[in-house]
Design a protein around this nucleic acid. Sequence first.
DNA 1: TCGGGCATGTAATACGTTACATGATTCA
DNA 2: TGAATCATGTAACGTATTACATGCCCGA
Lengths: 187, 187
Amino acid sequence: MAPMTSTLGFAILAVLARADSTGYEIATRMRHPVGRFWTASHSQIHTDLQRLLAAGLVSYATAPGPGPQDKKVYSITPQGRDALRAWVTEPPRSQPERDELVLKTYAAWLADPASLIEMFRTALRRHEERLGEYEADWGAMEADPPPFGTPAFGNMAVLRCGLTYERHRAEWCRWMIDQLSRSLKPS
Amino acid sequence: MAPMTSTLGFAILAVLARADSTGYEIATRMRHPVGRFWTASHSQIHTDLQRLLAAGLVSYATAPGPGPQDKKVYSITPQGRDALRAWVTEPPRSQPERDELVLKTYAAWLADPASLIEMFRTALRRHEERLGEYEADWGAMEADPPPFGTPAFGNMAVLRCGLTYERHRAEWCRWMIDQLSRSLKPS
DNA sequence: TCGGGCATGTAATACGTTACATGATTCA
DNA sequence: TGAATCATGTAACGTATTACATGCCCGA
């Protein structure tokens, strides 16, 4: 069975399943918090919404907008909700895993260790920052965890993933810095 | 300063910096072991090699090939090596982080918990398998760690990343399974 | 003899980013 | 007055996947 829409389409449906939104609002949520695991520019979202509309997975109501055109508040349709629900439990296609920092690391043996240490220190700082944010969010949630069946359950689940991911990344950066430091001053 | 080539170009250079190869061999290494952090199809590699050639970053020697055409054994040029070395320590552009399983998780609250458990169990198995492989490789390396300046250092560094990544993923999958199981039979 | 590995490439299509284009309101 | 936010869209370009096209050699 061919999929109804691209993965981006499901990302949009996942956002609309939580709240009706304009294309602009979807784009905003695509930056934060969805941006940690899926991204899209507003132009891509607008074009994809037209496809979802043609497929009957979303509908919209017009409202007077700030610009020259009316704004369109999109909603997920029952068919859209069904399609999303079915897609969620389908096994994810093995995906292209692209990680520029790791690729650089693969070729790191050619480069200057001191510059590499600086690069990994910058990366480490970023990961520690994010980890701090996630841990704060986690603390607020842990007290009474949201039950399955509510959107907040999804929030908690992806937060948990981000948390362990940032820990792993920070740990690896520290290991890299340690290894590279040793190569600078061998005992 | 505009980059000399796309990221894929640097991935190819990183492979050629280890050993001269035909386009076919590069494609093979792009599946394993490079495939864990960068992927490309052979058609993309062939076209990109032509660009790298035009830019003077690679050269090739012809040899009689199995098919109708001669095979081309590519080498990285000194300029290619310089470009790669310089690229390695440039800060990575923040990249589009796309993870289908996490996206599904974000919408998981809509779906059937039992099916979700199955999906995460499958994912967990895959991560544990890989972790096993990585740990075996690691054990073989840990005894005498390769020094910086050798390609094997790059191998070890990316292996270390894979190791902590798979651990994080497996841990998260177990947490998800646990959460979802609780929602099935609440005490 | 038939499928898989080795080896080269092109073409069509899909997906994603950046730039272009418009325009009201709000806040400094 | 000028930048930021809200709000819509199109066009051009770059990157990536899939399909098409060829053909030898080797082992089952």
